[in-house]
Design a protein around this nucleic acid. Sequence first.
DNA 1: AATTCTATGATTAGCCA
DNA 2: TTGGCTAATCATAGAAT
Lengths: 185, 185
Amino acid sequence: MSMAPKRKLSMGRQKIEIRRIESEEARQVCFSKRRAGLFKKVSELAVLCGAEVAAVVFSPAGKAFSFGHPSVEAILDRFIPSAAAQVGAAAGLGAAGDRNLAELNRQYGQLREQLEAEKARKDRAEEAMAEERAKGSPAAAWLDADLRDLGEEELMAFAAALADVQTAVSARANQVLQEALDVGR
Amino acid sequence: MSMAPKRKLSMGRQKIEIRRIESEEARQVCFSKRRAGLFKKVSELAVLCGAEVAAVVFSPAGKAFSFGHPSVEAILDRFIPSAAAQVGAAAGLGAAGDRNLAELNRQYGQLREQLEAEKARKDRAEEAMAEERAKGSPAAAWLDADLRDLGEEELMAFAAALADVQTAVSARANQVLQEALDVGR
DNA sequence: AATTCTATGATTAGCCA
DNA sequence: TTGGCTAATCATAGAAT
């Protein structure tokens, strides 16, 4: 009997107690997801409220992760104004080391900014398309429906192809118009 | 009387864009609530995954807040030396900072991977477009040149708009053709 | 290890006290 | 400023890839 109605492919989110997850694997997956979620919250808090926020995370394996807006170091340096200088001095370094550290941090921050910019741009692009659809003429509805399902890559190809089609149509329209004028003479 | 059936005592949560909240008061309220929420997330991540997590927040007014598990100090003390390692490594100090430097490089690498993934996606899209151009009719060259300069966002809007233009052009072509036929009679 | 999908639990925007 | 309320939005556990 193939009747079996497997309605529930997912149990959905289950309530859990906040205590160490026993399963090694589940703990790792949870760590990845929640770390990402935490960093997103950091970003949102900073942007929404114009605050400076930083988070530092050490995985159980000892790997370090950090995220901050405007930058982790800027915030930690502010939180512990003398920390960097103290450590630098303890290592027997002067201003030279500070500059290198600053440069690394700058690059790090720039990368993060680029990434965020890429994602933001993608969002805006989707938004722009949605808006265009909204005000598009009803006559284009048939195409609109198909357009709706196109991915970014497909859309690029589509737009290029459409350019040719449009050119062909324009050329044909011109040709027809010419003929019409010729007939008129 | 108590006629008014004020069904909606609350609009419930409204969707908001992640950008600076203009209202001074709303921003302050949001800051308090989300700061608490962030700290709760920090605690949950630490407990659930056996990780060490710390968050430092500066309100727009400059007031500092911090939270960490097991403690902010323990985590920053562990993290800051890794920052110092950058300086050490940059100054050629050697093995002492290698492990911490590796951590930083790993984060750096992760960011680059994400960024490259984004760019790869973009490249694939542009490649697809290039291919379409290659097999496209030479007649489309004029539009091709303009198309070449469009960014992703503009192209999305362009494609949507072009759908309308195409419809209009088709309609116009049809109209012209009709007139030509009429003249021919 | 990171991502994807679904169903559901968790968080919070807008209002008030 | 902190806290409660309600209705949505958001985040994510579990399963599979």
